[in-house]
Simulated scan of single mutants.
Amino acid sequence: MKPSASQSGSNNACQHLSIANSKIGEIMICPECSVIHLSLQSISIRLDLDAFSELAKMIKHAQATIEQAQEQAQKFSSNQANPSNDLHDADPLAHEALLQENAYPYYPHKVH
């Protein structure tokens, strides 16, 4: 960890130590006051350790939700592009049971 260049010369100022950085920002901590300083481009947020932990959990949950939605969208797209796969993979007994229960519409075409 390295001290941040933005610290002031005052004795009471936080000594920010950089603990992570990327092209979008930097995360620093003040070991004396246990405050996390999250800087994202032009936004700066100060969080205590518990709040930072909750933020990290929330972001991880959001990322997992996004990945799950993307996987479902890909499956849907591939099923739409190749709909015959659904019929080959389906259980014929389950298909017949759904027809009997009218669980989905089935309209036989009349031949003229």
Rank of each mutant, 00 (worst) to 15 (best):
H37E: 10
D48P: 11
I59G: 03
Q41E: 14
S39G: 13
K60E: 04
I36W: 01
S34F: 03
S22K: 03
D50M: 13
N21H: 08
I59D: 07
F52V: 06
I45H: 03
K57M: 06
S18R: 15
S42W: 02
C30T: 05
G25M: 06
I27R: 07
I27V: 10
L47I: 00
D50Y: 06
M28H: 02
S44P: 00
L55A: 07
I59P: 05
C30L: 03
S53T: 06
D48N: 13
A20D: 12
A51F: 02
N21T: 08
L47E: 05
S39K: 15
I29P: 04
I24K: 14
S18T: 15
H37T: 10
I29V: 14
G25L: 02
S44K: 14
S18E: 10
A20Y: 11
D48K: 11
F52S: 08
I27G: 07
A51L: 13
A51I: 05
I27Y: 03
D50C: 06
S22M: 03
C33N: 12
L49S: 15
A20E: 09
I59F: 01
P31R: 11
V35F: 06
D50S: 13
K60D: 09
S18W: 00
G25N: 00
H37Q: 11
K57P: 03
L55R: 09
I43F: 09
K57T: 02
R46I: 01
M58T: 11
S22A: 12
L17N: 06
S18A: 04
C33Y: 04
E32C: 01
H37K: 11
E32I: 05
G25S: 00
K57S: 08
D48F: 05
I45Y: 05
P31E: 12
V35S: 06
C30G: 05
D48V: 08
I24S: 11
N21D: 14
H16M: 13
A51M: 07
D50E: 15
S44G: 13
L38K: 04
R46L: 09
P31H: 04
R46K: 07
I29L: 14
M28A: 07
H16F: 11
G25D: 03
I24Q: 12
I29C: 09
S22G: 15
L49V: 13
H16S: 00
I59Y: 01
N21L: 08
L49E: 14
K60H: 01
S39C: 08
L55M: 06
L47T: 06
A51E: 12
K60M: 02
A20L: 06
S44L: 09
K23A: 15
I59E: 07
E26S: 15
S34P: 05
I24Y: 09
Q41T: 08
M58I: 00
G25E: 01
I27C: 09
A51W: 02
L55G: 00
C33D: 15
I19R: 02
K60W: 06
A56K: 14
L40V: 13
H37Y: 10
E26V: 08
Q41V: 08
V35E: 03
L38Q: 14
D48Y: 11
A20P: 01
F52C: 09
M28T: 10
D48I: 03
N21I: 00
K23F: 07
R46N: 14
V35I: 15
